[in-house]
């Protein structure tokens, strides 16, 4: 199976029960739509179980970053279980600790403060995307 050379997969937990899950989902969309639209692709995590072998090939085709809301790490665990080992994991609840001024409270519509937090998470995901692509480029050069 061919590995995509220029795209990074992002799998978000989307955790419906926690504000951090909503932050992970929105941050992932910010990367896909605004920060790195040409470099990233995604898939719904529950589709690994509900879908076919085509969907489960995702992490084999794309080097994949798991974005998790909490330390249960469903995106990391689910991607590894059904598709392939992610190249990196970003955990929202850990990033939040760096910004004690910003709180995640809502599971539905994000406040301005929560959007700011989502953007900070998005920027960390984007930096990881660059790192993954840079590493791949380096591999290409060195063979």
């Amino acid at each position: 199976m061919a590995i995509a050379k220029d795209k990074v997969g992002i799998v978000s937990c989307s955790g419906e029960d926690l504000p951090e899950g909503t932050i992970s989902r929105i941050a992932t969309r910010m990367v896909l739509e605004k920060l790195r639209p040409d470099d990233t692709v995604t898939i719904c995590l529950p589709l690994f179980l509900a879908g076919s072998e085509d969907e489960r090939a995702f992490a084999k085709v794309f080097p994949t970053i798991a974005v998790d809301g909490c330390d249960k790490r469903c995106a990391e665990v689910g991607t590894k279980k059904y598709s392939g080992k992610p190249v990196a994991t970003i955990v929202v609840s850990e990033i939040i600790k760096k910004y004690p001024r910003l709180k995640a409270k809502s599971r539905d519509k994000l406040s301005a403060e929560e959007k700011e937090l989502a953007l900070k998470v998005a920027k960390e995901i984007a930096a990881k995307v660059d790192e993954v692509l840079g590493r791949k480029k380096l591999r290409g050069v060195t063979g």
Binding site: C13, S14, G15, E16, D17, L18, G21, L45, P46, F48, L49, K72, C74, A75, V77, G78, K81
Partner: peptide, 8 residues
Amino acid sequence: VCLPLITI
């Protein structure tokens, strides 16, 4: 409940 918890 979080659907991903069911998935895993």
